[in-house]
């Protein structure tokens, strides 16, 4: 089993607070890795270190290395936009861009000029189908994306990300802003997608992690407490803090 992403000695400071203290993490290829931990433990920061989104956080300092397929994404001269093309992000709240449904999916293709053909429609259709949205929008592709429901917008964001054929999908509590039915829909999609992609999922619900995860990273106060195959961590946690969290006494 290969590691798709390897994090070595990662330290993240924002302002004067140390958010992540010396993390070493392996994200196995072609699996769902769930990052677990009580709120404020640095889960989202860890996720944002993987597509260099911490660059956008003011006063943030990153030390250490994050390897994507063996290439350190923090090495000088790395093209951030290329990294982000290879690593998709599904955010907590869906932000559909101020354009039509069609153009939302085409956005990534257009900015990267990966497919210059005039008629993108078959491609758009493919990714909308992959995200499970095609049947609901096929008759109104030129409507503004903001007309969709929140749940639909989240699937649109998924389609937008998938259209660039990323290798990894980072999902930052992707169902927390959704109603239960839409949440189930997204979860089902992630389930299907793990056949093809490496998925890193930050989640606040333990049950979701149990349902989806193959691999688990448990964090507490900026430190990685325990990581390993999901079954081992869930059924036989080695560390006291992991046990306490799984039993619901911390978090």
């Amino acid at each position: 089993m290969e590691n798709h992403i390897q994090i070595r000695n990662l330290k993240v400071r924002i302002g004067s607070t140390e958010i992540i203290k010396n993390a070493d993490i392996n994200i196995p290829d072609g699996q769902v890795t769930a990052i677990l931990g009580p709120s404020g433990c640095g889960k989202t920061t860890l996720l944002r270190s993987m597509n260099r989104f911490l660059d956008l956080t003011e006063n943030s300092r990153v030390e250490g290395e994050v390897f994507l397929d063996g290439q350190n994404i923090y090495a000088p001269g790395v093209d951030v936009t290329e990294i982000r093309r290879r690593i998709g992000l599904l955010a907590q709240r869906p932000y559909s861009l101020p354009m039509s449904i069609y153009e939302n999916v085409a956005y990534g293709l257009r900015i990267h000029r990966v497919n210059q053909s005039k008629n993108l429609k078959p491609i758009i259709r493919h990714y909308l189908e992959l995200a499970g949205l095609w049947d609901e929008v096929k008759s109104r592709l030129s409507d503004p994306a903001s007309a969709l429901s929140i749940g639909q917008q989240q699937r649109l964001c998924l389609a937008r990300g998938l259209a660039l054929e990323p290798e990894v999908i980072l999902a930052d509590e992707p169902t927390s802003a959704l109603d239960p039915i839409s949440a189930q829909h997204i979860e089902g999609k992630l389930q299907e997608l793990k056949e093809k992609y490496t998925i890193v999922l930050v989640t606040h619900t333990l049950r979701q992690a149990r349902r989806l995860a193959d691999h688990v990273v448990f964090m507490y106060l900026g430190e990685v407490v325990e990581q390993g195959p999901a079954r081992e961590v869930f059924d036989n946690p080695q560390m006291e803090r992991t046990k306490a969290y799984l039993q619901g006494s911390i978090g």
Binding site: V78, D79, R113
Partner: peptide, 9 residues
């Protein structure tokens, strides 16, 4: 490593 594409220009 960084390619000078049109969008970077």
């Amino acid at each position: 490593m960084k390619r000078m594409t049109r969008r970077h220009l």
